[in-house]
């Protein structure tokens, strides 16, 4: 399962790679990283069919996670990837907006990796 993680913090890559070390080694999960909304869209142009899931932060410089969500939902209506948005704690505005534009799931910062692993496991199995 290929997952695209979109976050403006480069350290996210190291964190995900370490957190999912075993899963990556087993070949269960395959992560790609984009550090802005624009970069994510650019990546999707070439790999649209591969990406099964997108994990995106909302507050990013340039294109925000919500805009990214809107664009993806508009451009890929036929084979929609699963999109999980990462919302800041208590940020109800972004939560309801993400909900409105068709996000599949939500994670709150700080990301609880145990919970995320469980969610990915469920999706992977189904």
């Amino acid at each position: 399962m290929k997952i695209l993680v979109v976050d403006d913090e480069p350290d996210v890559q190291a964190l995900f790679e370490q957190r999912f070390r075993k899963e990556i080694r087993n070949g269960e999960l395959n992560f790609s990283f984009a550090f802005s909304g624009e970069e994510a869209l650019h990546y999707l142009e070439g790999h649209a069919s591969e990406i099964v899931m997108i994990l995106s932060d909302i507050n990013m410089p340039g294109m925000s996670g919500i805009e990214l969500l809107k664009t993806i939902r508009k451009d890929n209506p036929l084979a929609p990837p699963v999109i999980m948005m990462i919302t800041a704690y208590g940020d109800t505005d972004n939560y309801s907006q993400a909900m409105k534009f068709g996000a599949d799931d939500f994670l709150t910062k700080p990301v609880n990796f145990t919970e995320l692993k469980k969610k990915l496991q469920e999706r992977y199995e189904s």
């Binding site: 957190r19 700080p110 990796f113």
Partner: peptide
């Protein structure tokens, strides 16, 4: 503080696993 703190927590947690 929230974001850097998240990294501190997450990296320290993953370090335990490592």
């Amino acid at each position: 503080i929230q974001n850097p703190l998240n990294f501190v927590n997450n990296f320290s947690e993953v370090s335990v696993e490592l």
